[in-house]
Amino acid sequence: MIAVIMHVRTKPDKTQRFIELTTQLQKDVRANEPDTLLFQVLQSQDDANAFVFTEFFTTMQAKEEHALRPYHVAMSADGYACLDGDPDIRCFDHLGEAAITGVPA
């Protein structure tokens, strides 16, 4: 399983548009990507322009295909135009079976 954590900041005048885009993207991912186990966008309670994406994919192929989906491609340019700076994207591997199943090791 592959985990991706992405931190982004939005331009204050683009925050609402970013929320609209990512809310729709979450719906599209959940409806069309069974190998994306979790796709959640979170907004900071302390800073309305700070967001975190949490994404879990069953395989590296699922992660790579995610960004190529038509709905993702269609919103990407508009979404990136909302950002204030570059996103901080990091990929992680799960450690142990307990991290995957939630069952104590």
Rank of each mutant, 00 (worst) to 15 (best):
K63M: 08
T15V: 10
F51N: 06
Y80I: 15
T54L: 09
M75I: 14
A98Q: 15
T54G: 05
K27L: 02
E64F: 03
T23F: 02
V4E: 02
P34T: 06
K27W: 02
V4P: 01
K63T: 08
L68R: 13
A99T: 15
A77F: 02
T54A: 04
Q45M: 03
M75H: 04
D47V: 11
Q45L: 03
T54Q: 08
Q26I: 12
H72M: 13
F51K: 06
A48H: 11
Q24I: 10
T22V: 15
T36I: 07
M6D: 03
A62T: 07
D35S: 06
R69A: 07
L38K: 13
C91P: 05
P34K: 01
Y80G: 08
H94S: 06
R90Y: 03
C91T: 11
A48D: 08
A98K: 15
I19K: 08
R69Q: 13
Q26T: 09
D88P: 00
A98T: 14
D78M: 05
D88Y: 00
S44G: 09
F57T: 02
D88S: 01
E55R: 05
L38D: 05
K27M: 04
T101S: 15
A98I: 13
A50I: 08
T101G: 12
G102K: 14
L42G: 05
L38V: 07
Q43K: 06
H66S: 10
A81V: 03
D88I: 07
F92Y: 09
D46P: 00
P104R: 12
G96L: 15
M60N: 08
D13M: 01
L42I: 12
K14L: 03
R17S: 15
H72Q: 12
E64Y: 03
Q24K: 14
P104V: 13
D35T: 12
E20C: 09
A77H: 13
K27D: 11
F39V: 00
I5H: 04
T10I: 14
T10C: 11
E33H: 05
F39Q: 04
V103N: 15
F39N: 02
E64R: 13
L83E: 12
K27I: 01
A3N: 08
T36Y: 01
P34W: 02
V52E: 07
H7V: 01
C91L: 09
E97F: 07
K27S: 10
L68F: 01
E64H: 11
R69N: 12
D84N: 04
I2E: 02
I89H: 10
M6I: 10
D47E: 14
C82M: 09
